Simulated scan of single mutants.
Amino acid sequence: MFSKSRLKAKREEFGLSQNNIAIELAISRVAYNHWESGKTVPNQKHLTALAKILDVPVTYFESEYNIVNNYLQLSPNNQIKAEEYVEELLLSQKTSNVTPLFSVQVLSDIQLSAGLGEGFFDEYETETVYSNEEQYGYDIAAWIEGDSMEPVYKSGEVALIRSNGFDYDGAVYALSWNDSVYIKKLYREEDGFRMVSLNKDYPEKFIPYEDEPRIVGLVVGHFMPVEGV
């Protein structure tokens, strides 16, 4: 898992400001700040560039880096002792009342509008959220914003999307149209798609095929992330 604290410490060790690194990466200072504040994590391209700027291996930014590095420096006998101790801790954890959580990587800069529509952003970073249940069968996870799909899909939830085309009328899809991404029920008609909200306060919309709408995928699940993790 990406470690924001390791990135900040190494940057400060080099005497660089957030803006210095943002300029090197050709991104905004705000985008870089989101990495150190834990709001988003760098994609692989930016991780590689950060490693080069700060003269460290790419794996340096993983929170497990110190654990692995220290383990490799142990003697063979002490490595066995360390493994046994970790197994004891895991067993103790499994027998306690700790509720397991499952991580999900969510697109930070793409929001599925359950309202008027949100645009695409220049960077496609991800952030880690947690669910009480393990999530299966999806390819993309993205935030939901707005109330047009309530009461089923709530603003602040994460939508789980399986990348595929249009399957059948009345299913809920993520749809890209005019530089915005929507989550709506879709019905295919002769000249386009009819986009329908669950919240009756929102009118239906017609999207002509000539606008070149793109089906991002079928919404196969949704959940409210666990807070305070």
Rank of each mutant, 00 (worst) to 15 (best):
F193V: 05
L218I: 06
V196M: 06
N33F: 09
E212L: 15
H222K: 02
E133Y: 07
R214P: 02
S28A: 10
L218Q: 00
Q135W: 01
A141P: 04
N69E: 15
I80H: 13
L47I: 15
N20I: 06
E12S: 09
Q135F: 01
G156K: 09
T126K: 10
P225E: 01
L16I: 07
R162D: 04
H222N: 07
V196R: 08
L90V: 08
E118R: 00
V220C: 11
D169G: 08
E83Q: 10
A51M: 14
S5P: 07
G156M: 11
A26Y: 07
Y65V: 06
V129G: 03
G115A: 14
G119A: 08
V106Q: 01
A49I: 07
Y209C: 13
P76C: 08
L90M: 04
W35H: 02
V30D: 13
A174I: 01
G115Y: 04
Y124E: 13
Q79I: 10
V98L: 14
P213A: 03
E84T: 11
N33I: 01
D109V: 00
K81L: 15
V216L: 02
K94P: 00
L112V: 01
A51L: 14
P42N: 12
S148R: 03
G217C: 01
N19Q: 14
T99D: 13
Q73E: 14
L16S: 05
E145P: 02
P203G: 05
D55V: 09
F102T: 01
Y153M: 11
V219G: 01
F206Q: 12
S180P: 03
D191P: 00
S5W: 05
S5H: 15
L198D: 07
L160F: 06
V68H: 12
F2K: 09
D179R: 12
S92T: 10
T48K: 15
E145A: 14
I80F: 10
S63I: 09
E150C: 10
F102M: 05
L74K: 13
R162F: 01
